[in-house]
Amino acid sequence: MTKLPGWQGLQRVALVLGLPAVLVVVWWFASADSDHLVFRPLSEILVAFRETWLGPRLVEDVLPSLSRLARGYAASVVLGVGLGVLVGWSRTLRALLEPVLELLRAIPPPALIPLIGLFAGLGDSRRIVIIIAGCVWPILLNTVEGVRAVDEVLADTCRSYRVRGLTRLRQLVLRSASPQIMTGARQALAIGIILMVISELRGTVHGIGFSVEQFQTSFRYPEMWSGVLLLGLLGVALALLFRLADSWILGWYHGLRASNRER
């Protein structure tokens, strides 16, 4: 990376922050005098945001939601990658299970919520199962694809140097499937956030989705909008976090692609 001269750096900052700043300013002034019941002034929403989410609700609602998402997502990654490696390993097993998996994946996860309700209790575990039921499929199917596509020459190299067992699994199979696994994990994260919210709707467990629904049904619109804002910020923060993980895990892959493009 060459250092940008001051002027160009300034231009870049202006490009990055310009439009968001304009939008926020427009929102601020356009809504400032609003006496509409639903569309409240931005200033009011920001005050509600501070009072609602930076108080006790941070511990009572935000953290429980995030913790369920984290546990469900982690379980999905472990399950999806584990089963994906097993299924991807054998051509017969793959042919046998692929249509079943495609069918299960195609079911919109929210449709499973009433069914999961029959089995799991009312507490945290039910919400976590809902998150897993939606997140596991993209990871599983992408892992199967990735494991199937291991390069033949690399596989031969491992065989002839007698690289086997766990070393082979870790250094060949999982690493070469990792770009695909990350694609699945990215899709799963988006689904996970959706399920984190809707698994709390019409329920009794504390959480972000639960609170926002309460605000809506009790006509507390500034608080409701602040909840929408919070979900937006969380979505952006998790996407950034994922991008960090991606560049750490797939640094080699992005470099390889960049060097292939140059040639």
Binding site: A190, I193, I194, V197, I198, L201, G209, V212, E213, F215, Q216, M224, W225, G227, V228, L231, G232, L234, G235, V236, L238, A239
Partner: peptide, 12 residues
């Protein structure tokens, strides 16, 4: 805007 989960708009 892209990562804002669409379900955030359900109450709205």
């Amino acid at each position: 805007l892209r990562p804002i989960p669409s379900v955030a708009w359900i109450p709205a």
